[in-house]
């Protein structure tokens, strides 16, 4: 991982004046109208907002899945606008861990192989990969489920496999998009507990959600409305 320089302190994310416009002319949709924010190493941030507030767009930009129309985005000390597609895939591979609402595990592929996959794309040897995948699965409490395919696991278990897959590369930040949106109350509690634990061990966690309960689990809340940041509060857990 990139080393921190003194001037950049421990910033993981720096977003400055980012706008995102879909389409052109009269049908253009302004998803983000100028968002600026900084997230430091080790923070647990919830990005909140109703649907249409631009939170999913912000999440896609933070995850390097989409590029801003205007404005700058630095992840660690890398200006994302200057990266080509090849380099973006390296950023996604090394610095970002994704967790999706619909789990997005690869079907017909065992939990262990799903967790291994990001390491495979990093070119890490089979032996090391197996070991790290096993560790990651153990850390989410699924040490004995490595041989199961996604359809053999419950929703909560699938999401934990997805979290293990996101963590296995030891990314700069964990980016979770409505991670509990498809789960029951009990599983939601477990997943939030797990995210807490991950954050306590030093990882930066960013959760996109529209649920107050999920946001309360974090230690900082950024609220978006109509493409603007309207609230940014921190509290001590």
């Amino acid at each position: 991982m990139t080393t921190q320089t003194a001037t950049q302190k421990s910033l993981v994310v720096k977003v400055e004046g980012v706008t995102k416009v879909y389409g052109v002319g009269e049908t253009a949709v302004h998803a983000l109208r100028g968002v600026s924010l900084e997230i430091e190493q080790g923070e647990f941030v919830a990005i909140m907002g109703a649907s249409g507030s631009g939170k999913s767009t912000l999440m896609n930009i933070l995850g390097c899945l989409d590029i801003p129309t205007q404005g700058d985005y630095w992840i660690r000390n890398l200006n994302v606008a200057e990266l080509d597609e090849e380099q973006l895939s390296v950023v996604r591979s090394q610095l970002i861990g994704f967790v999706f609402q619909s789990f997005n595990l690869i079907p017909r592929t065992t939990a262990a192989n799903n967790v291994e996959l990001p390491l495979a794309y990093q070119g890490i040897s089979l032996h090391k990969r197996r070991e790290r995948a096993r560790e990651a699965l153990a850390s989410v409490g699924l040490a004995d489920r490595g041989g199961h395919e996604p359809h053999e696991l419950s929703g909560g278990q699938q999401q934990r496999v997805a979290i293990a897959r996101a963590l296995v590369t030891k990314p700069a930040m964990l980016l979770a998009d409505e991670p509990t949106g498809a789960l029951d109350t009990q599983s939601t509690k477990e997943i939030l507990e797990l995210l807490h634990e991950i954050n306590r061990s030093g990882a930066t966690v960013i959760v996109i959600t529209h649920e107050e309960e999920v946001a309360r689990a974090a230690r900082r809340m950024i609220r978006l409305r109509d493409g603007y940041v309207v609230e940014d509060v921190k509290w001590v857990a």
Partner: peptide
Amino acid sequence: REIGIRKAIGAPK
């Protein structure tokens, strides 16, 4: 969708 997932978790083109 699978291709999308693979790309999101860092698969190069």
